[in-house]
Nucleic acid binder design. Structure first.
Length: 491
RNA sequence: GGUUCCUUGGCCGAGUGGCUAGGCACCGGUCUGCAAAACCGUCUACGGCGGUUCGAAUCCGCCAGGAACCUCCA
């Protein structure tokens, strides 16, 4: 498995050669959603980014175990250790069982992910299903002296941990700054220090989700679930941990502290973080209320949207930016992606129609390597896509007879598009793929258009226009070409 | 206020010292009963000022503007 894949490690702040701990196995853990609301465009970014990584590592030959958690308990509102549990609040407001809320939004999340052609992870563990593992980890941290109990809750002692370890190494901040700048919030008196974070919280009487523990009837802190579940499924040390950049602090910083405090060493070898999707230059997110749900995007039902954007358009849009850059949402940008995607898919389809020549008049041998080089450079999908667009121009030129391609080169083009566009980028033709009846349906349309051709030959413009107009009204796009016709069903 | 980062042509977005990414839009052309589409071509940018260098979008400094994190957030 020789490959020069470099990935950017947030911890070292540089690109590093990816060498898994137990090749050919590779383990990756990515922070999944807190399922208390509809998935929005922001959720699509990490899902697609790490889907690409999952697909690419698999393509390179690794046996990848991809764990993406579901947060269904412990994630509090307002401030990390004091607000109401997000799931519980939603359940209270809608008079549902918390698990009904979880199941409802989880179903919607998974449906949206499937539409985006995001492969399901190998394991999708729920925080609430791993209370025992989390309690065990708290015990280890307590035994090692890095946590303290206070009124039924257990807190991580950041100051003590920082004496021999570096709290803040991932996010690049130092504890003194944080002691000076961390706000003191009401109800935090039971913590020794404002920067300490909860491992276990005693449940208040109105809190409906709680479990027994040695300290109180309560629930685990948010940061703990990822440490406990990654350890359970990927081991004490594993390869990649991913998530959004906004999780670096405090979430991932706390994960590092927890792992070290419990097991004596860090768990993660490569930390990867995707950047945010912005709207008008600002982060799209719940707290700002400026998010657009995926359902609204697919249906074009949000007031900011000029039209509906298909899941593949969204996917392609996200892949046209490098994952560590912010990506600005706009109708213009989405429409550009939609057009570009159509063009690339059409060319992909047309590879099969290229006339076979004895020899190629151009050299396409470098294409595959260029795509690999781009992917190996920290998953530079926009560069890889730009190479595919260069190939699109060659495909079109070959179809127009301006260049010639040998059957070997045509096969090579087909193969490169299959590998990169279909397998690695996960781009599919939304009309055709998975539609078993498509062929029969397509032949019926072809038949109608053959009749229109005949009418045209007879200069029977009335009939020819009638067929075109009525098909157009049904959502078909009819194009006349030099010696025939083309059509496409607009979604 | 602290920490970190960003500023590329009409829009999105690659690019880390010399070899003018790519997509979309615009404009021009080809094709065409009409129409639409498609295809081809064109458009040569790097916030401002100064510095380093034979040479800077790319390195350094200052200034301006913006963002993320420091509370939950992908």
């Amino acid at each position: 498995m020789e490959h020069p894949l470099q990935i950017y490690n947030t911890l070292s702040r540089k690109k590093e050669q990816f060498v898994p701990l137990h090749s050919p196995l590779a383990g990756m853990y990515v922070c999944g959603p807190t399922v208390y609301g509809d998935p929005h465009l922001g959720h699509a970014r990490p899902a697609i980014t790490f889907d690409i990584l999952f697909r690419y590592l698999s393509h390179l030959g690794y046996k990848v175990r991809y764990v993406r958690n579901i947060t269904d308990v412990g994630h509090l509102e307002n401030d990390a250790d004091h607000g109401e549990d997000k799931i519980a609040k939603k359940a209270r407001l809608e008079q549902l069982e918390p698990m009904e809320v979880v199941q409802y939004y989880l179903n919607r999340y998974q449906k949206a992910m499937e539409a985006l052609n995001v492969l399901p992870p190998s394991i999708e563990p729920h925080a609430s299903g791993h209370i025992i593992e989390q309690i065990q980890m708290i015990k280890e941290i307590l035994d090692n002296g890095f946590a303290y109990e206070s009124e039924g809750s257990v807190y991580f002692n950041v100051e003590k941990y920082n004496k021999n370890h570096s709290y803040g190494k991932l996010s690049g901040r130092n504890i003194e700054d944080m002691l000076n700048t961390t706000r003191v919030l009401d109800g935090q008196e039971e913590k020794h220090n404002a920067i300490d974070f909860a491992l276990w919280k005693k449940a208040s009487p109105e809190h409906i989700m709680h479990w027994p523990s040695p300290w109180s009837e309560g629930f685990p802190g948010w940061h703990l679930e990822c440490s406990a579940m990654s350890k359970k499924y990927l081991g004490e040390t594993f390869d990649i941990h991913g998530g959004g950049m906004d999780l670096i602090f405090p979430h991932h910083e706390c994960e590092i502290a927890q792992s070290v405090a419990a097991g004596g060493h860090e768990a993660v070898r490569y930390w990867m973080h995707n950047n945010m999707i912005t709207i008008n230059g600002q982060k799209m997110g719940k707290s700002l209320g400026n998010f657009i749900t995926l359902e609204e995007l697919f249906g074009g039902t949000h007031s900011l949207l000029q039209q509906a954007y298909s899941p593949m358009t969204i996917r392609f849009f996200i892949l046209q930016a490098q994952y560590r850059s912010t990506l600005d949402f706009s109708n213009e940008a989405l429409q550009a992606s939609e057009k570009g995607l159509e063009r690339i898919l059409e060319a992909f389809d047309n590879i099969a129609k290229i006339p076979v020549s004895a020899q190629s008049s151009v050299n396409i041998k470098e294409l595959r390597k260029k795509c690999y080089d781009a992917m190996n450079d920290d998953l530079n999908t926009p560069i890889a896509i730009s190479h595919l667009f260069e190939a699109v121009r060659q495909i079109n030129a070959a179809l127009a007879g301006q260049i010639t391609l040998s059957s070997e080169d045509i096969k090579e083009l087909q193969s490169v598009f299959n590998v990169f566009l279909t397998d690695i980028f996960g781009i599919k033709n939304e009309v055709k793929d998975g539609n078993a009846a498509y062929d029969s349906f397509a032949k019926a349309i072809d038949m109608l258009l053959e009749m229109r051709m005949q009418a045209k030959i007879n200069k029977d413009w009335a009939t020819s226009d009638k067929i075109r107009n009525e098909l157009t009204a049904l959502g078909f796009e009819i194009k006349d070409t030099k010696d025939g016709f083309e059509w496409r069903l607009n979604k």
